[in-house]
């Protein structure tokens, strides 16, 4: 038989960027164990709308763990307590009946709160933009074997490309560093022949942008990897450091980050 849960929520409510926020207590009644955490919030929001109150704002899109839009700190864990799972895929059976659940937004200077649980992650987009284009030929698909890629490299590039840009790594990092995200985005192109021509400028510009956005630095706590819903490994951070050092050694051009 399907179980249902009654829960007590403490949710961060904040009207806008400049407003002072606070935790507000809500009761979530009759929540199906099969509901996702976001569906649970939907249900709470319906109740709020009926009472004429503002619903809790949170980001979401695909609700199947692939877009990276959702994200919040649930009981102290980025994307909630279940490993390698986005919060849209986190089911309420992970919780006990009567449990208190604290929900907070990602916290980082580079992720200002827009409203309630919604933060502005434009800083991550600007890091990707700073990486620039790849000068590979577009148009009709090339013959598949014209550009051989070693299996081991394509596997690793795929592992890196699994990053959905959710920002949980930043949220979980004690230094609010974006190293895991940047490392994944650098690695997935720098491992492939298509990414080879711009390999050095890509890593230099992305690191410069990462710093300009006001993220912290890496002190190897590995909290990012633990929080990442896509299992991105800190091995990519080592690779980022390596790429950045060698690209700097070869560089013949000055490095200037873009404006925010």
């Amino acid at each position: 038989m399907e179980k249902s849960l009654n829960l007590v929520l403490h949710v961060w409510r904040q009207k806008n960027r400049d407003a002072k926020g606070q935790f507000v207590r809500y009761e979530a009644k009759n929540i199906s164990e099969h509901a996702s955490l976001l569906e649970m919030l939907d249900q709470v929001n319906e109740g709020l709308l009926e009472k004429g109150e503002e619903p809790i704002a949170f980001d979401h899109d695909c609700r199947e763990g692939i877009c990276g839009a959702c994200g919040m700190i649930v009981n102290g864990h980025a994307h909630g307590p279940r490993k390698a799972t986005t919060v849209c895929q986190l089911h309420m059976r992970e919780f006990q009946d009567g449990e208190e659940i604290w929900i907070e937004p990602w916290r980082a200077a580079a992720f200002p709160v827009v409203r309630d649980l919604v933060v502005d992650r434009g800083s991550l987009d600007r890091i990707v933009q700073a990486g620039g284009f790849i000068s590979t030929r577009t148009g009709s698909a090339p013959e598949a074997n014209s550009l051989p890629v070693a299996k081991e490299k394509s596997d690793r590039a795929f592992d890196a490309a699994a990053c959905i840009g959710c920002g949980a790594c930043v949220a979980a990092c004690p230094n609010a560093a974006a190293m895991l995200f940047t490392a994944a985005k650098v690695a997935h192109l720098n491992l492939l022949p298509q990414g080879e021509p711009e390999r050095d400028t890509r890593v230099r510009n992305m690191v410069a942008q990462m710093d300009a956005e006001g993220f912290g630095h890496c002190t190897n706590h590995y909290e990012c990897m633990e929080a990442c819903p896509k299992h991105i490994s800190v091995e990519f951070i080592a690779q980022l450091n390596r790429e950045f050092m060698s690209a700097t050694a070869r560089a013949r051009q000055e490095l200037r980050p873009r404006r925010k």
Partner: peptide, 25 residues
């Protein structure tokens, strides 16, 4: 730099896997 990177902290967030040595460098 890293202190400035998180001006507002968490209420509930606990570190999951880092070590005492790492946190107190």
């Amino acid at each position: 730099l890293s202190r400035a990177a998180r001006p507002v902290g968490y209420k509930m967030r606990k570190d999951a896997i880092t070590t005492f040595a790492a946190r107190t460098m």
